[in-house]
């Protein structure tokens, strides 16, 4: 096969898959009206995606905050007073680091686990069994997961932001001799609500995309246990890439 037709084929595949994911999203949202039918499905997913991810988010948030203080100090050296660390670090956290790193970690944990769970159900005919009972797998599996991720991702992001700020302050205070007053004055001086909300707004998209891709990849799994493993990887790779692409796209729209 020559290179042109190869690229052509890949492009067609990409758009086909994109179309399928959009259709899945449409059908998932169409079932939101039935979410009250079995509320426990949604609550269970919110717990799994939200509460279950907290320890991970705490670790990621704290270390991200700490390292960004060091990095700011390193970049500022000889140029800018360390008194500005607070504002530099907090804006970086609110706009980019908090939302994106949280989303990527969640894509690894939640996106991959959705793909694995649904993929296993697919290859063992459990999805067919659901259908045969007259239960839509979209309503029963997709909607609770996508909505839970859509709701929990912003909450986790807020959490990560707060923890990261604490981490950043810890480093600034203990190692860089910046007092609390100086640090938080600096945070406040250049604080824009838009930064925080922009980041949280993005995280809603990240959450939706992560769960949606997990479901899509999971439901298309073929080829037994090996296929489930591949789906896991695929779900993570695609959602991580989508998060970064979306992050860029949303930046150009919001900021």
């Amino acid at each position: 096969m020559n290179i042109i037709s190869y690229i052509g084929q890949k492009t067609i595949n990409f758009f086909e898959e994109f179309g399928e994911i959009s259709r899945l999203f449409g059908r998932t949202i169409a079932y939101v009206k039935d979410i009250g039918k079995d509320r426990s499905l949604l609550l269970k997913q919110m717990e799994h995606i939200g509460t279950g991810s907290l320890p991970l988010v705490i670790i990621v948030g704290f270390f991200t905050g700490m390292v960004s203080s060091w990095q700011a100090a390193y970049q500022f050296k000889g140029l800018i007073s360390n008194g500005f660390i607070g504002s530099a670090v907090s804006r970086a956290i609110f706009i980019e680091l908090g939302p994106v790193l949280t989303a990527i970690v969640i894509a690894g944990r939640v996106g991959a686990s959705i793909a694995a769970e649904l993929g296993t159900m697919k290859v063992t005919e459990q999805i067919d069994a659901l259908e045969s009972l007259g239960i839509s797998p979209i309503r029963y599996l997709s909607t609770p997961r996508v909505i839970a991720a859509m709701v929990m991702m912003p909450i986790l992001t807020i959490f990560a932001n707060a923890i990261a700020l604490i981490g950043a302050f810890a480093v600034a205070n203990f190692f860089l001799d910046i007092t609390g007053k100086v640090f938080f004055d600096s945070v406040q001086r250049l604080f824009h609500l838009k930064d925080v909300f922009g980041g949280i707004f993005k995280s809603i998209f990240f959450g939706t995309v992560t769960a949606l891709i997990g479901v899509h990849v999971g439901l298309r799994t073929t080829g037994g246990a090996e296929g489930v493993g591949l789906s896991c990887i695929r779900a993570f790779v695609i959602s991580a890439a989508m998060i970064l692409i979306l992050d860029y796209t949303l930046w150009t729209i919001i900021f």
Binding site: M121, L133, G134
Partner: peptide
């Protein structure tokens, strides 16, 4: 499909649920 009972080749039981939940899932939903 609610008028059709289907026994799958692999049984296809929901492995995250108990036997009870498996049997009554359709009725419950």
């Amino acid at each position: 499909r609610r008028k059709i009972g289907f026994l799958f080749q692999s049984a296809a039981l929901f492995d995250s649920m108990t036997v009870f939940e498996n049997i009554v899932l359709g009725l419950w939903e």
